[in-house]
């Protein structure tokens, strides 16, 4: 589909003038809404990052431009860098785990014929569950230190119970486990779609030519599923950098600041603390990081679309 020249039927009609009107009526509401609700916050936040805007002082005081002061504060703010580090650690923990689980389960799914639809349907489940329910209800019950089932099972197996929510390291592990539980399904479904796009006769031909299965996997499957895999990874990286909800409700960023993510820090400074200016500078820092990965994502997507 991508390589065929696209024919726009409107060119073939005599009603072109009237049709030209509909062309804009259909498109413009969507463009207008996105421009207002996307561009206005983006521009406003940039403005706020250069001022001393404070939620509780709006209207009472003149807002002053402070130049780069917020960004200077950001650079030397140890608490902020702590949250930046936490976010990167979280991302580096969950994304590879999701890739490995995603690939393993997708390969298994691609291998079977009976029951494939049943498993595929069941694997959708975690994607539909609210992060609040997963993290707050499920997470807090399962990781409960005294009588939670995970520690209970560990103890029955002869291990010590793990201080899930009171140790900084284990609290991060618990959060990662929740994210992996919820989002591996996304990788599974993406990679399954990619695997199903690999023509089976290629493997057949390779086998006839004497390639073993491992060679056939590395030389044929991997290159062919690479574009979709990269896109799926970029989407997961972007989402992992934005993580906040599961943290808010499982650990609240604690113990101490051990699991606070950048987004949670922005919420805490900007919304709870009312320091819109400093919060905005943090948000811009996050945006710039995300734009690197988002840019790569858009390039890949553009390539998948083919020519206009």
């Amino acid at each position: 589909m991508a390589t065929e020249p696209r024919i726009y039927p409107s060119k073939r009609f005599r009603f072109e003038i009237k049709d030209n009107l509909w062309k804009w009526i259909f498109l413009l509401p969507a463009v207008a809404i996105i421009l207002i609700l996307l561009a206005v916050p983006v521009v406003w936040t940039l403005y706020a990052a250069f001022t001393d805007l404070h939620l509780y002082r709006i209207g009472d005081f003149e807002t002053e431009f402070v130049g780069l002061a917020n960004f200077e504060k950001l650079m030397s703010n140890r608490s902020f860098w702590r949250t930046a580090r936490n976010t990167v650690v979280f991302m580096l923990g969950v994304v590879p785990a999701q890739l490995i689980i995603g690939l393993t389960v997708a390969l298994a799914l691609n291998n079977i014929t009976r029951g494939q639809k049943l498993f595929r349907t069941w694997f959708l489940m975690p994607l539909m569950v609210s992060p609040v329910v997963v993290s707050f209800i499920v997470g807090r019950m399962l990781f409960q230190e005294d009588i939670g089932p995970i520690n209970d099972i560990l103890r029955n197996l002869g291990f010590d119970g793990v201080p899930w929510l009171t140790s900084p390291t284990w609290a991060m592990v618990a959060l990662m486990a929740i994210d992996v539980w919820q989002w591996s399904s996304f990788m599974i479904l993406m990679l399954l779609a990619a695997l199903q796009g690999v023509p089976p006769d290629l493997h057949e031909a390779a086998r006839v030519d004497g390639a073993n299965q491992l060679q056939s996997f590395w030389r044929i499957t991997v290159p062919l599923i690479m574009p979709i895999t990269m896109t799926a990874l970029l989407i997961r990286i972007i989402d992992a950098f934005k993580v906040v909800e599961i943290i808010m409700v499982l650990t609240g960023g604690g113990p101490g600041q051990a699991t606070e993510s950048v987004t949670l820090a922005i919420y805490r400074t900007g919304v709870k603390g009312g320091d819109l200016a400093f919060g905005s500078s943090q948000a811009y820092f996050l945006l710039i990081v995300l734009m690197i990965f988002g840019g790569a994502y858009l390039v890949l997507t553009r390539r998948a679309m083919g020519k206009d």
Partner: peptide, 10 residues
């Protein structure tokens, strides 16, 4: 790619 954190402030 835009972070939700940016939107909630605005």
């Amino acid at each position: 790619m835009f972070p939700g954190a940016l939107f909630i402030l605005a």
